[in-house]
Each structure stands twice: as structure tokens, then as C-alpha cells.
Computed example of a mutant assay.
Amino acid sequence: MGATIKIAIIGAGYMARIFSDNAHQLGIETHCFAWEKGAVAADFVDYFYPISIFEKDQILELCKEIEITGVVATTELTIPIAAYIAEKLNLNGISYDDAQKITNKYRNRMCTLDVQNLNQPRFALVSTKNDIFKLNFKLPFVLKPSNLGGKRGVSVVNNLDELDLAMEYTFQNVNDSTCLIEEYLDGGIEYSVESLTYRGTSYIIQITEKISSGPPHCVELGHSQPACISKVLKKKIIETISEALEKIGVVNGPCHTEIKIIKDEIYLIEFNARPGGDHIAWPLVDLSTGFHYIQAAIKIACNDFTGVDYKKLKQRYAGVRFVTEQTSYLKPLFDVCEKFEWCYKKNEINEDLTCLKNNNGYNTNYFIYASDKPVDIDKINDDISR
């Protein structure tokens, strides 16, 4: 790829900075579009345009003038904007029609009802408490926004005394008058599937095992790659998610699909048609596989992708642990983690541990590990704590 290649990055958060850094490694010029306030990526891109992401026609005209080669989304909100620009410029992307719906969890569940081996919890759209009462859902159940990812607004309702507070919490994150109610999937382990799709062909790059806080908000407290699963289950996940991605309209670009495995059965949590945040897509996938996931996503957008040679993927171990109030037991290891060879990065924001209510992996205490051998974080921590 030559120096004249130009990528449009929609949004200016942490993922936008990651896209810019990776684009520069490829010799690509970066153009970022977002509000100036809170624009983390503004100082790391070649050109920053302080324009609301919702001014899609204004961004489109600028992209025409710049002669943009590809366009990438960085968050759920930017997916339709990136798709609109890509479609208008005849670049690789998701169709604008699908992109306007692809963040809707209810729609995605309906689209994938007939996918073999993909189980769905009972689910419905609700607007009021009366809607919930009429459905007669068994407790506990889950309330969540139907149009947002990242566990924002998710609340597990264990008894009806918690319902008012849970609904208030969920509807603070809802853009319309409805939210999703789902059967609570008890037991099992949460995973995410990191994929790339190019012209309708999907490649599963990595499967991530997650550490969840559990109810009420199911916040993610850590990630490990690769997931500790059997070859048979891995094959099943790859085949199932590849079919599901086609059903929801992911024909180009990255997707971060969240699932839960209960007794070797796959249950859908949600799709996110963008790279996995909280360090998953970068640097964890790079560290565990040696495959430059974000760079590949950029190449897909620029129509310069040549597929994935699975034989060249490395079999390494990588992960992140967020050191919060919920994981205060990790504080002894966090204090000294940089002394270990497996420590890739330590990020200390505050000596006081805070309680995570939403996934926020960039603005909290964490450490990232990477090694050719498995790293038993809990055992190392226990040894230090004695």
C-alpha cells in the first residue's frame, strides 16, 4: 500500500487513535471526523476535522475532496455514518440500510433465529412495567438497551422490588421508547469472537474468554486469549458465527460478537460491527496471534485485503485484568506486575480502586500480559499475597 492511501476515521475516541496508529504503520494518511470536545485521537491523526459525526453529508463532501480510499467506524454510533460514506463513494463497507439496523439487538436476534447451533434466550421489546408483567418472564431477567453495545444500561432484575431502579438505569441509555427484556442465562462463561469479513467471506481470528462481574450490570473485568475451549467447540463457534454474520449483513469489516457457552451450547448475547474494545482487538489479538487485526480492518476498507493464512497465526497467550473495586484481590499483583517478563503494559490511573458500572477499559487501572506460555494470574497473585 502506497503513501497516497487515505483513510477516513469516523469518531475520535480511543479506538480512533488505535486505527490512526496502525494506519501510520502501513504508511497511510489519516483523516478523522468528530466533535472536538473529548477527541482523544485529535493529536494523533494527520488531519482532524471538528465536525459532528451526524453531519454525514458534510463529511461525505470532504471525503470526496480528499479522495479518501477507505472509511472505518470506531463505535456503534459511527457505524451507519461510515457505511453511508463508503456506499456513496463505492468503497468497501456494510450497506447503509443494514448499518442503520445492525446495532439493534432485537433486530439481530430476529435475523439469526434460524442459524444452526445459535441458541437465543427468550426475548421481547418492552416500554413499560405493564408490558413486562404481561409477558410473565421468569425471574431473574435482563433489561438492556436494544441499540447499544458494551454492557451500557444492562441490568439484571432478581426480584420485582428492583424493577423500577433497573428500568430507570436502562432507559437512561435508550434512544427510543423501548428496551429489550431477555431471559437471564445462568451459569456458563462469556466469550467474544473477533472476526473480519471481506466481500462476504468471514475469518474468525480469535476467541476471547471474558471475566464478568455478574449481576446486576455484568461488567467485564478481564479478558484472556485464546479461550480455553476444545477444538470441537471452537469449530462449532467458527461455523455458527460465520453464518450469523452473513444473516445480519456484515459483508465487510470487523465484528466483535459476544456469546455465552453453557454446557457446550452457544447462546447469542450481541453483535458489534466494529473492533472489540477494552484492548481486545488491539493489542491482545496482535499479541496472541501475531496477526495485525486493526491493520487488516484498514486494508479491508481500502480494498487491499488478501485473506488470512491460519497456519501463520501464532499460538501465544495474552490478556488484560482491570484492577477495580470488584477485583481488589488483584491489587498485590498490580503493584509489582511490571517486574514480570510477561507484563506488556501497566496502566495506573488512581491508587484508590473504583467500582466499574460500565465497560471502561481505557480509563481504569489495568495490566496486560503476553507470553509464549500460559500465565496463571490468580496463582501468581496468590503467591504474592501470602
Score class of each variant (00 low, 15 high):
Glu246Ser: 15
Leu118Pro: 01
Ala73Leu: 03
Ser288Phe: 01
Arg122Lys: 15
Gly93Phe: 03
Ala296Asp: 07
Ala297Leu: 06
Lys357Thr: 14
Asp164Met: 12
Gln225Ile: 13
Ala86Ile: 03
Leu221Trp: 06
Gly222Ile: 08
Glu209Phe: 11
Lys373Asn: 13
Gly222Leu: 10
Asn92Pro: 07
Asp46Cys: 05
Ser146Phe: 11
Gln116Tyr: 12
Trp342Met: 14
Val174Thr: 14
Leu91Cys: 10
Met15Trp: 08
Leu268Pro: 00
Glu341Thr: 14
Val250Glu: 01
Tyr329Trp: 15
Lys299Asn: 13
Ala124Thr: 06
Thr197Met: 02
Thr208Gln: 03
Ile237Trp: 08
Lys345Asn: 03
Asn22Pro: 08
Pro275Cys: 13
Val250Ser: 03
Val336His: 10
Gly277Ala: 06
Arg386Gln: 15
Leu330Arg: 01
Tyr198Cys: 09
Ala124Lys: 10
Ala42Tyr: 04
Asp309Thr: 10
Leu125Glu: 05
Gln25Leu: 15
Val71Phe: 07
Ser95Met: 07
Lys235Asp: 15
Ile280Asn: 00
Leu245Thr: 02
Glu270Thr: 04
Ala370Pro: 01
Asp304Val: 08
Leu185Val: 09
Gly38Val: 11
Val154Arg: 00
Ile298Trp: 06
Asn159Trp: 11
Asp46Lys: 06
Pro332Thr: 10
Lys37Cys: 08
Asp304Leu: 13
Gly188Phe: 09
Val375Pro: 00
His217Trp: 09
Glu76Lys: 06
Thr201Gln: 15
Pro80Cys: 08
Cys355Asn: 13
Pro50Glu: 09
Ile380Gln: 05
His24Asp: 05
Asn108Phe: 03
Ser230Val: 10
Pro275Phe: 09
Ala296Lys: 04
Gln225Ala: 11
Phe141Leu: 07
Lys6Leu: 06
Thr208Ala: 07
Cys218His: 14
Ala227Ser: 14
Leu143Pro: 00
Leu356Ala: 12
Asp286Ile: 02
Ala297His: 05
Pro145Glu: 01
